[in-house]
Simulated assay, not measured.
Amino acid sequence: MTQAHPYKTLISAANLLANAQKPNWVIVDCRHDLMDPGAGQAAYAAGHIAAARFANLDRDLSGPKQAADGAFKGRHPLPDTDALIATLRRWGVSDDTQVVAYDAHGGMYAARLWWLLRSIGHDSVAVLDGGLAAWQAEGQPLTTREPTPAPGSICAKAALTRSVDAHDILINLTSQRQIVIDARAPDRFRGENETIDPVGGHIPGAKNRFFKDNLQADGRFKSGHQLHEEFSTLISEPRAAVMQCGSGVTACHNLLALEIAGLHGAALYPGSWSEWCADAARPIVKGV
């Protein structure tokens, strides 16, 4: 079935180039560095795809780290829906907008925006396959000019995503109804070389699927067929799977890969390891 905005998972640099000037397309630069939070903004200022808006992971794609009761929600909790809508409208996003998110990190941050838009029912959103490098490989220049978009009018609709919280994960330790997949690097999963969170290890029973394993050597995603084969060795029923990582960001990369693979319905644990390990009463495992 032909649709006005067919890009719902990935878009190639060539297809973005062919459509980038359309008035109902919005491009968002999601570059970031967990160890240097100002690096993404600096990279954007130095040069970005023409008309791209900048999304700050901490400010635009995350919410407050503390809950109303003072509990720590993790390093990158989901933003409040009203705050997310306000940000998207500021970027000029409306209900009929095709959004394209990109970064320079294999989609690890762009996938977060992809998931967030789907969480408010907007499925016309895709990640630039291969990121900024793929765009530049098309011979396209970057610009330092920042756009001044007219306000958009997007509204929240029924979510196309699912999420769970720490309580759900705790209950699952006994029920084992859900399989938890951790997107962090294997050494961090084992509790080694932890430099971001105060405690190393992983949630008991979790399996490891490093998000970078979703990519080919050139930084583009593997084919849907290959991703389906690889994820099927970990999960038999996507709706009985929960994706997590360090703080709910790269878990979205695994969720995007599942969507590309045709494995729909897995949930996100937004607080992920950063929230889980903040409570000493929650069990942890080290090693494999």
Rank of each mutant, 00 (worst) to 15 (best):
D218V: 07
E194Q: 11
S119W: 11
V127E: 11
H167I: 15
V28E: 09
L142I: 03
V93K: 04
N24A: 14
P23S: 15
A241T: 14
H76A: 02
D213F: 08
A261H: 02
P151K: 14
N208T: 01
V125C: 11
R75V: 07
T144I: 03
Y44F: 14
A111L: 04
T250M: 11
D103A: 06
L234N: 03
G63R: 06
L263T: 01
P64E: 07
L256T: 02
W114V: 13
K22A: 14
K8M: 06
W115T: 05
H225Q: 15
G224P: 09
V199K: 12
A280L: 06
R188Q: 10
L16Q: 07
I179W: 07
D95L: 00
S175T: 15
R190I: 00
D33C: 11
V180I: 15
A159L: 08
G121C: 06
F210W: 13
Q216N: 15
T195C: 11
D29Q: 03
G201V: 09
K222R: 15
G130T: 02
H228M: 01
I196Q: 10
H5E: 11
G287Y: 10
N19W: 01
A4G: 06
P23T: 12
D197P: 07
R282A: 02
Q41W: 14
N208Q: 09
H76S: 03
S247D: 06
D33M: 14
W91M: 04
G121Y: 08
P283Y: 08
T87M: 14
S163L: 05
P151G: 06
R209Y: 13
R209D: 00
I181Q: 03
A52T: 07
L10Q: 12
D82N: 15
D95P: 00
A166R: 12
N15M: 05
S163D: 10
I196E: 09
L160D: 02
V125D: 01
I27F: 05
Q176P: 07
V93Y: 02
E192T: 03
Y102I: 04
Q136P: 03
G200I: 11
G74R: 12
A83D: 08
W115H: 04
I260Y: 00
L17K: 15
A267T: 10
A55P: 06
G70Q: 09
P204S: 05
A257C: 02
D279T: 11
A18T: 00
G107L: 10
F221C: 04
H48M: 11
W276D: 01
D96C: 08
A159H: 10
D69S: 03
D60V: 10
K22H: 06
D29R: 02
T233G: 05
G92D: 08
N19E: 07
G40M: 02
P151N: 08
S274Q: 04
M1V: 09
T148R: 07
N214S: 15
K212L: 12
L116P: 00
A86R: 07
A267Y: 05
I49H: 00
V127Y: 10
Q178M: 13
A110K: 05
L128Y: 03
M108D: 00
T2H: 13
H202V: 05
S232P: 13
L61P: 05
S272N: 13
G191I: 13
R90V: 00
